[in-house]
Design a protein around this nucleic acid. Structure first.
Lengths: 201, 201
DNA sequence: ATTTGTGAACAGTTTCACAGCG
DNA sequence: CGCTGTGAAACTGTTCACAAAT
């Protein structure tokens, strides 16, 4: 097994994609070469990743998909109970995320949507409770929400992030184009569509 | 100047965020330490990034924001004429991206939306022309579309990606949870909200 | 005094090579 | 004999240290 227990960021990202691939893999067994064929990643990299996770049940035989899935989930701390999250900013993009299907078969539960426009909160139809932004603090605490998806206007991104953190949020999926300045213990993933288009262009 | 002309991926990502920061920076000058204060990145990293870009107009005085912006745009090849893109898969998420405001002040123009459900294509209201998925090939060629945002159901992701590539697409923003297997010359950015939630959890 | 430009040192990530298991 | 497990080697990206510029 690998000496360290810290799983590198790059490996975590691949493992999430692999997890999804395993869910739809038709056979009960899979080899590092087959994974390589499906993903384009080097087979040695996949074996190395699994080695980092401390997984070694595949010796010379390939991996049992079911077993591998639970191992990855466990290693990444995803097998735990559900996590509560919220959507902050209910413009077109934010409102589109208020969809039960999105979190179906995932460990995430959307507990609330927030928008600073009280009017929008009242008009929008949703299966989730919506609140004006000034209720963020108590709702996040009461509903034990630990994750947020930030879909506000760019100019409000930093202020809203700070209010989320003050309310006790631990991770933010940032869909704005802004860099969020946050304390080191808060995790942020940047998911701006425009920035992504610039990267693939 | 840096010897190499290849700008690393990590630097490109930071530069896109920096670009957006510069757009809203109130003063005409900015120093690497000020950028560090806004982003949390080490000041030396910022200077190193700019060195990689071949930028050296800041000597001991900080950078002129306007000048720096054009330099970054140039180095990343973003100052060119507009790029045409399309949205593939018009579920809640895809439909939400059919928004003029999204590409406002960006070099991107949405030229088409596609969905394999003909019914949905006819019913959806949009400022952009919508087509059934089987028209993808000719529309992409006729409209000279080079980039696609993929928001289809996971099970259709790989097939649709292949059809896009066959039609001549060069870059894909992949909002599904799947790994896309594509030829090395095609650029892909993965932007799955669920995978991002798993990363920040 | 402050701030950049630069390369060397350091840290993180991927690939290689191959021993050992089934 | 094909396939994994493992550490070393190669590579990429980040931080440090300091000379040079204003």
């Amino acid at each position: 097994m690998a000496t360290s227990v810290v799983i590198p960021e790059a490996t975590r990202k691949r493992m999430l994609l692999l997890l999804h691939l395993l869910e739809t893999w038709p056979e009960s067994k899979i080899t590092s070469l087959q994974i390589s064929g499906q993903t384009g990643w080097k087979d040695s990299l996949i074996r190395h990743d699994l080695w980092l996770l401390g997984y070694n049940k595949g010796v010379s035989n390939g991996y049992q998909t079911v077993d591998l899935r639970t191992a990855i989930n466990q290693a990444l701390g995803l097998e735990a109970q559900t996590k509560n999250c919220c959507i902050v900013g209910l413009g077109r993009l934010g409102a589109a995320l208020l969809d039960e299907k999105l979190t179906e078969d995932t460990p995430f539960v959307i507990k609330a949507g927030f928008d600073s426009n009280v009017n929008r909160v009242e008009i929008l139809r949703s299966n989730f409770p919506l609140y004006p932004a000034h209720d963020m603090n108590w709702v996040i605490k009461q509903e034990k929400i630990s994750l947020a998806v930030l879909t506000v206007a760019d100019k409000d991104a930093q202020v809203m992030a700070e209010r989320l953190i003050a309310a006790g949020i631990k991770g933010i999926v940032n869909m704005t184009r802004c860099v969020l300045k946050v304390p080191p213990e808060i995790k942020v993933e940047n998911l701006s569509v425009i920035n992504a288009l610039k990267l693939v262009n």
